[in-house]
C-alpha cells in the first residue's frame, strides 16, 4: 500500500518536476539570472571597458529628467497599443476567412499570409524602405509617374509612425492568424449548429460563441503581440533609423544607443528595467481583463 502511494507521488509530483527541470534550468540561466544581473547593472555607473561603481538609484533619478527617454517611452506605448490592436483584428479576420479548409486555395493563402513572419525583420524593413522611400521608393515612383506628388511616407513624423505600424502589422499578422485558426478549429461545431437552428445571426454567433470561446487564444495573442511590439527594433531601425528626429524612436533603440554608442551600460540597464516593468504591467493588465476562461460545457 505504502509503495503504491510512493509510486503515485512519483508519477504525480516528482515526474512532472523532473520533466520540467531542464526547461526551468534554461529559464533560470538565460532569463532569471540575466534579469537580476540587469537590475544590478542598473544601479552601477559602468562603461564597457571600465569597472562598475555602485551609485544606488541615481540612474533612475536621471531617467526622470531625460526628455529623450520619455519621448521614446510614449512612442513605444503608442506603437505597441496600435500594433497589437490592429494585429489582433487583422489576424482574426484572416483566421475567420481561412479556418474551414473548404475554400479553394485556402492553404496557399495561409502560407502567403504566414510567410512574412518567417522573414528576417531587417530584410522586411529594407524591402519596405525601398517601397516607401521618398526619392527611390516604388510607391512614390508610381504616384509621380501618374502625375501626382510623392507622399513623405518616411520623412514626415506622423506618416513614418503610421508606416512602421502598418508594416509591423503586415509582418506579424500571419503568425497570429495561425494561432487563431487553431483556436477557432477547437471550438465544437455543434455550438454553431445549435446557434443556427436557434436562428442566431452571424454577428450574434461571433460575439456570443466565437469570441467567448476564443478568449484564451485571444489572451495568448495579445500577450505575445504586446511583448513582441515592445521589443521591436530591427524592422523600425531598417525602415527609419528611429526618425525623422525622434518620431519612430522606441525605448529599445535608445537602450542600444546609450549602451553601445554612449558607453553607459548602467544607464541603459535602468532603461531596460523600466521597459521590463512596462511589459510586465501591460501583461498583468491583460490577464486581469481577460478573467476566467470559458468552457465548452
Amino acid at each position: 500500500m505504502k509503495s503504491k502511494r510512493q509510486k503515485g507521488n512519483f508519477h504525480q509530483i516528482l515526474a512532472p518536476l523532473l520533466f520540467l527541470l531542464p526547461n526551468m534550468f534554461i529559464f533560470l540561466v538565460f532569463i532569471i539570472v540575466p534579469a537580476f544581473q540587469g537590475l544590478r547593472m542598473s544601479l552601477m555607473d559602468w562603461g564597457v571597458f571600465t569597472d562598475p561603481v555602485f551609485i544606488g538609484f541615481r540612474n533612475f533619478a536621471e531617467l526622470l529628467q531625460d526628455s529623450v527617454f520619455w519621448v521614446t517611452f510614449v512612442n513605444t506605448i503608442v506603437f505597441s497599443v496600435s500594433v497589437v490592436g490592429l494585429m489582433v483584428v487583422s489576424s482574426l479576420i484572416l483566421a475567420l476567412l481561412l479556418k474551414r479548409n473548404t475554400l479553394t486555395g485556402e492553404r496557399v493563402f495561409r502560407a502567403v499570409f504566414y510567410i512574412p513572419s518567417l522573414l528576417s525583420m531587417i530584410a522586411v524593413g529594407i524591402a519596405w524602405r525601398f517601397i516607401l522611400g521618398d526619392e527611390m521608393g516604388v510607391m512614390n515612383y508610381l504616384m509621380r509617374s501618374m502625375g501626382g506628388p510623392g507622399v513623405p511616407w518616411l520623412t514626415s513624423g506622423r506618416l513614418a509612425m503610421m508606416s512602421v505600424i502598418f508594416v509591423s502589422v503586415w509582418a506579424g499578422s500571419g503568425y497570429y492568424m495561425v494561432i487563431f485558426i487553431s483556436g477557432l478549429q477547437a471550438i465544437p461545431t455543434e455550438l454553431y449548429e445549435a446557434a443556427r437552428i436557434d436562428g442566431s445571426s452571424s454577428w450574434n454567433t461571433f460575439w456570443l460563441i466565437t469570441i467567448p470561446l476564443l478568449k484564451s487564444t485571444l489572451l495568448v495573442v495579445v500577450v505575445l503581440g504586446t511583448i513582441a511590439s515592445f521589443k521591436a527594433y530591427e524592422l523600425i531601425f531598417a525602415m527609419t533609423k528611429g526618425g525623422p528626429g525622434y518620431a519612430t524612436k522606441f525605448i529599445v533603440q535608445q537602450v542600444y544607443q546609450v549602451a553601445f554608442m554612449e558607453d553607459r551600460m548602467g544607464y541603459a540597464s535602468a532603461m531596460s528595467i523600466i521597459l521590463m516593468l512596462l511589459i510586465g504591467f501591460f501583461t498583468a493588465l491583460q490577464f486581469a481583463f481577460s478573467g476566467k476562461d470559458q468552457s465548452y460545457e
Binding site: 524602405r129 522611400g133 521618398d134 526619392e135 527611390m136 513623405p152 518616411l154 513614418a160 526618425g243 525623422p244
Partner: peptide, 13 residues
C-alpha cells in the same frame, strides 16, 4: 533631399 537626413535614404544611391 529631405529623404536622406529625415528618411535615411542612401545618398550614394
Amino acid at each position: 533631399p529631405k529623404s536622406v537626413w529625415l528618411g535615411s535614404e542612401n545618398p550614394a544611391e
